[in-house]
């Protein structure tokens, strides 16, 4: 049965947990929909800067927020990025999939990735800046998906 996950957090560890659950559920044969909102959207940004028209505030937002999965901070012990680097090193050594790998796996498995249009508007994130295969939607889409699901997580 379907699972839905709301990804609100833009912290690397939390987004990783979301994708591990999503991939696991897909491997159990379940349909999965992930709904990215607010800080979670940063996980879906392309690593490369994309040329789009933005006003001053939007540019500022875009510049201050992490651009893509690789850049997300840790929720604890980030220590201005040093903690995150150390965590990434340990994870690599222990053969844990990185966040970009987990995202790629999820797309391979057919996990539906939805981006909240309202948050995109607030944060000035344009569709072109998001990785391919992301669908733009609103709360009704999420609720519609949740109605068909038996597990719903807010991360």
């Amino acid at each position: 049965m379907k699972k839905t996950i709301i990804v609100f957090s833009g912290d690397m560890d939390k987004v990783m947990a979301a994708f591990i659950i999503a991939n696991g559920a897909a491997a159990m044969g379940d349909e999965v929909s992930m709904f990215f909102t607010f800080w979670g959207l940063n996980a879906l940004r392309k690593a490369k800067k994309v040329k789009v028209r933005k006003n001053f505030i939007e540019k500022l937002f875009g510049w201050m927020m992490p651009r893509g999965a690789e850049k997300l901070p840790l929720s604890k012990m980030n220590f201005a990025g040093m903690g995150k680097q150390m965590m990434k090193m340990i994870m690599k050594k222990k053969n844990v999939n990185s966040l970009p790998e987990l995202i790629e796996m999820a797309r391979d498995m057919g996990v539906k990735i939805l981006a909240c249009s309202m948050s995109m508007d607030v944060m000035g994130i344009k569709k072109e800046e998001l990785i391919d295969g992301v669908e733009i939607a609103g709360v009704a889409t999420y609720l519609g998906e949740a109605d068909e699901a038996n597990v719903n997580l807010f991360i």
């Binding site: 159990m28 053969n95 999939n97």
Partner: peptide, 13 residues
């Protein structure tokens, strides 16, 4: 071997 969660069940799937 050496694969971490959720790797093994994904391989099975």
């Amino acid at each position: 071997r050496g694969m971490q969660c959720p790797g093994p069940i994904m391989q099975l799937h």
